[in-house]
């Protein structure tokens, strides 16, 4: 018996499923380049890359707006999915999503404060504020969750809920007491939208997500052991507190960056891991990449659909994800009970 015959087991369906998802994602990326207020044929899209002419506005549209936006959608989706897997593994709670660490609320408050008090208006400024806010909020949750006294996932989740409510209240105070333009800017961020999110965000987003993904990959085996419960994990040499800490860092990098870039997109981080589990099983080495793929697919699909439903207007990706995902998730939950962790 050689190599990985025992370890890397998967049903034949897994391979095909992954292949189909990967192919689907590439196809959707192509579609995403063509779809929008102004529809473009495939030939123009290909020309924009192969025979670029800065004089043709359609070429500019593809390269400067649609292509970056598509990449942002893929990055944001993948990041949220992986953050969701990590969150569900460390809390051992199948309903956990990355927002539980207070990330959405922290980012929201920081962005509102930035717009209302500091006059921050650029995309890059908002992105930076969002990241910082998400990071600070999760540090707060982490400390309030009492990790110094040992690990109790329930306590962390409760602390996360409490911090979220408080921060959102603060954000609302700011919104209600500011001028209309502030509210207007915030509202676009708050529904989760990829409209106009492109070039300037791409590099910082890419770097943060890459760092988060690398950390997630490093944690894969530790997350496998977290699932076995406290005693067995520790008996096997796991250090739960360290894993929690690194997991929180990864979640902040991934979900924080995604949220700062696209606004709060719920649901992807919750549902994509469950879909992926059906395909890849519970081993994180397979689950993490599979989730990233499916989450990116779901997000991009929602974004494309959002550009079509009230064409030539747009519905934010956050809203579309909820609209498509909600019924779908209910159907899944009814068909087979949600996999316990």
């Amino acid at each position: 018996m050689t190599g990985r015959t025992l370890r890397r087991r998967r049903s034949p369906g897994t391979g095909y499923g992954l292949l189909a998802a990967g192919g689907g994602l590439l196809l959707l990326m192509l579609v995403s380049l063509g779809v929008g207020a102004r529809g473009l044929p495939v030939a123009v899209i290909l020309d924009a890359f192969l025979a670029f002419d800065p004089g043709i506005s359609d070429h500019l549209l593809v390269r400067e707006l649609r292509f970056p936006r598509t990449l942002v959608a893929v990055l944001v989706g993948g990041a949220l999915g992986v953050a969701g897997v990590i969150m569900q593994a460390v809390t051992r709670n199948p309903l956990a999503d990355p927002g539980l660490l207070g990330i959405n609320a922290g980012a929201a408050l920081a962005i509102v404060a930035g717009i209302a008090l500091g006059g921050v208006s650029g995309m890059a400024g908002q992105f930076t504020l969002g990241c910082v806010g998400a990071g600070l909020a999760s540090v707060g949750v982490y400390l309030l969750g009492g990790l110094r006294q040992g690990i109790n996932p329930v306590r962390v989740v409760l602390a996360g809920a409490a911090v979220t409510v408080m921060l959102m209240a603060l954000a609302q105070i700011l919104i209600i007491n500011s001028q209309d333009p502030v509210f207007d800017q915030f509202r676009h961020w708050a529904v989760g939208s990829l409209q106009g999110r492109g070039r300037p965000l791409l590099l910082p987003l890419w770097l943060l997500v890459l760092a988060g993904m690398v950390l997630a990959g490093y944690l894969a085996r530790a997350l496998d052991l977290m699932a076995l419960g406290g005693d067995l994990g520790r008996a096997l040499g796991l250090r739960p507190r360290l894993v929690w800490l690194l997991a929180a860092v990864a979640i902040v990098l991934l979900a924080g960056a995604a949220t700062a870039a696209a606004g709060p997109i719920s649901f992807v981080g919750l549902a994509a891991p469950h879909l992926a589990r059906g395909l890849a099983g519970p081993d994180h080495h397979r689950l993490l990449p599979c989730t990233a793929l499916l989450a990116a697919l779901l997000t991009l699909f929602a974004d494309i659909l959002g550009r079509l439903v009230i064409h030539p207007g747009e519905v934010g990706v956050g809203i579309m994800v909820a609209l498509i995902g909600g019924p779908f998730f209910i159907a899944m939950a009814r068909r087979r009970r949600l996999l316990h962790l």
Binding site: L6, L228, G229, L232, L236, G281, P282, L339
Partner: peptide, 23 residues
């Protein structure tokens, strides 16, 4: 240590679970 009771993630196959002992 073999604890009195342990929990495993849903859907895990035997070989994968045993392999986690190599951590």
């Amino acid at each position: 240590l073999l604890p009195q009771s342990s929990s495993a993630p849903a859907g895990i196959c035997v070989a994968d679970l045993v392999a986690r002992g190599r951590f």
